[in-house]
């Protein structure tokens, strides 16, 4: 643009300038429309599988096998009945909620506790221990899985929720995240004034530090919740009773037990997605904001 304007120099008339801006505007409008179309197309492709899933779940197996389905059918209830006769999917939902909520609560509390501990107390080996915590983040989750299974069996904890919930207290990422938060959001002076008021250290943490860290804890909470909700391998090997299993394990067993019944399978995955969709629709601004905030802190 620059070169052009120089070469034409001051010979450019007002009308020429006008035409140029018009053309420029037209060009950029075309580009904008093109980008818009691409965006909407991408969004469509992104949502298509979910649409297809919902539609397909309302048809008979014969139709699923034979036809391309674009519109809702009327067999959802039948498919659903076959599914819940064998797999207690809502029970799985409840189980998932129980496991995820307690693990998230424990994870948040202890991450805050230890993050605060590392941030505010200058004990011996603070540095090395913190480095050690960071190093444990590099250990892949599956490394100890066989020993974990065998040890939990020895402790008599197999087929209980303890091995799924208690280890949440040991979340290196959460600790790291909340230590940074405590570093910046909790001023030492406030702690001192708490001490002067005669609070003990735990009370100071509960009454002063924890409220100050709450926004960050909420952010971390979303990460922990999603992570726990989606966990699959551990509950699969730890829990045997159908009535105890969380949703992902049940979905996997739907796949095994309804290998031929596609209608029931579609209903199963639809049931696992729709509540998430609703929660997400209600809280998407918050969730996305938190993910972006969390992404920056990392």
């Amino acid at each position: 643009m620059k070169d052009y304007s120089i070469s034409t120099g001051n010979t450019k008339t007002v009308s020429q300038l006008d035409a140029e801006t018009k053309r420029k505007n037209r060009n950029s409008l075309l580009i904008k429309i093109f980008i818009w179309i691409m965006l909407i197309l991408a969004a469509g492709i992104c949502l298509l599988p979910f649409y297809s899933m919902l539609i397909t779940s309302t048809h008979t197996n014969a139709d699923i096998t034979r036809k391309l389905l674009l519109l809702p059918g009327d067999h959802f209830i039948e498919n659903y009945k076959r599914l819940v006769e064998v797999v207690p999917i809502w029970r799985g939902f409840l189980n998932s909620l129980i496991i995820t909520c307690s693990a998230t609560a424990i994870g948040l509390y202890f991450s805050a506790l230890s993050g605060y501990g590392f941030s505010k107390f200058d004990f011996k080996f603070n540095g090395p221990l913190f480095a050690f915590v960071l190093a444990t983040m590099m250990i892949p989750g599956q490394l100890g899985i066989i020993g974990f299974f065998k040890l939990m069996n020895m402790f008599g904890l197999i087929n209980t929720y303890w091995p799924l919930i208690v280890p949440a207290a040991n979340n290196a990422f959460g600790l790291f995240f909340l230590k940074q938060v405590a570093d910046s959001a909790v001023p030492k002076e406030m702690l001192e004034s708490g001490r002067i008021d005669g609070c003990n250290e735990l009370q100071i943490f509960h009454r002063i530090a924890l409220p100050l860290m709450t926004p960050a804890i909420a952010t971390l909470g979303i990460f922990l919740f999603i992570g726990k909700w989606n966990e699959f391998l551990q509950p699969m090997i730890i829990l045997f009773d159908n009535s105890l299993q969380p949703l992902p394990v049940m979905i996997a067993s739907v796949r095994n037990q309804f290998s031929v019944d596609y209608g029931a399978q579609y209903v199963g995955i639809a049931i696992s997605i729709v509540p998430i969709l609703i929660v997400f629709a209600l809280a998407s601004k918050k969730i996305i904001g938190n993910v972006m905030a969390g992404a920056l802190k990392q």
């Binding site: 991408a42 999603i226 992902p248 995955i269 696992s272 998430i276 969709l277 997400f280």
Partner: peptide, 13 residues
């Protein structure tokens, strides 16, 4: 929201 949504869905599903 649309582009992020698949990330919320359980991998098994």
């Amino acid at each position: 929201a649309i582009f992020y949504f698949p990330n919320m869905v359980t991998p098994v599903t």
